[in-house]
Amino acid sequence: MDVANLQSGHFVTLLMMAFALGMDAFSLGIGIGLKGIRLRDILKLSSVIALFHVWMPLAGIVAGRYMGVLLGHVATMAAGGLLLVLGGHMIYSSMRGDHARSFNHRSVWGMTLFAFGVSVDSFSVGISLGLFAADMMMTILLFGAFGGLMSVLGLLLGRRVSVNLGDYGEACGGVILLAFGILFLV
C-alpha cells in the first residue's frame, strides 16, 4: 500500500510541475496570440514547444543524475533551492511584465527561439528531478504534453482576451514551483 501511495504522490507532483512549467508557455502564448496567429501556425509552434518540453527536461534529468552522484546528500537541498530560484524568477518576471520579444513566430528560427525560451525552466527543473532520481519517461511525457497543450490554449486564448491574463498565468506557475522548492527544503 505504501508503494502505491508513493507512486501516486510522485505522479501528482510531476503533474503539478508539468502544469506549472506549461503556464509559462501559456502566458507567452497569449502574447503571441494577441498579435494574430493562424491555426496552422498554432499547431506548428505548439508541436515545437512540446518537443522542447521533452528534450530540455531530459537533458536536465541526465545532468541532474550525474550531479546527484557527485553531490550525494547535498543534492536534495540543491534541487529545492533551484526550484525556489526558478519559481521566484517566474513571479518576478510576471510582475515586471516580461513578454516575448517581437519576432516572426512563423519562421523556423522564431519558433525555435520561442520554444527554447519557454522551455529553459524545464531544463532546470529536470536537473532538480534528476537529483531526486525521478521517473524519466513519466516526467518527459507529462512535461511535453503539458507544454504543448498549454501553448495551444494560450495561443488560442490570446486571440480572444487581453494581455493581462498572461501575467497571472506565469505568476501562478511560479508560485507552484516556489511551493515545491519549499517542500523539498523542509
Rank of each mutant, 00 (worst) to 15 (best):
D2I: 08
A4P: 14
N5I: 14
L6H: 07
G9I: 00
H10V: 03
F11W: 01
F11I: 01
L15T: 08
A25G: 13
L28M: 12
G29D: 05
I30C: 10
G31L: 01
G33P: 10
G33C: 03
L34C: 09
K35A: 08
G36V: 10
I37C: 07
I37M: 15
D41I: 04
I42N: 13
L43I: 14
S46Y: 02
S47H: 06
V48C: 02
V48W: 00
V48L: 04
L51D: 05
L51A: 02
F52M: 05
H53L: 01
W55G: 15
W55T: 15
P57V: 00
P57S: 00
L58I: 04
A59T: 11
V62C: 05
V62R: 09
G64L: 00
Y66W: 15
Y66M: 12
V69C: 05
L71E: 06
V74E: 12
V74F: 15
A75C: 07
A75R: 08
A75Q: 07
A78K: 08
A79L: 03
G81H: 07
G81K: 06
G81Y: 06
L83Q: 01
L84W: 02
G87I: 01
I91A: 10
I91V: 14
Y92G: 07
S94P: 13
M95Y: 15
M95R: 14
A100F: 11
A100T: 06
H105N: 11
H105C: 09
R106H: 09
R106A: 07
V108W: 15
M111H: 10
F114W: 04
V120Q: 04
D121T: 00
S122L: 00
I127M: 02
I127R: 01
S128F: 12
F132K: 11
A133E: 12
D135G: 00
M136F: 14
M137H: 10
T139C: 11
T139F: 11
I140C: 03
L141H: 09
L142V: 12
F143T: 09
A145Q: 10
G148E: 01
L153C: 08
L153F: 15
G154I: 02
L155T: 04
L156K: 14
L157Q: 12
G158W: 09
R159K: 08
V161H: 02
S162N: 12
S162P: 14
S162R: 10
V163E: 12
N164A: 04
L165H: 10
G169E: 05
E170P: 04
A171S: 07
G173V: 00
L178R: 09
F180G: 00
F184D: 09
L185M: 14
L185A: 03
L185Q: 11
V186Q: 09
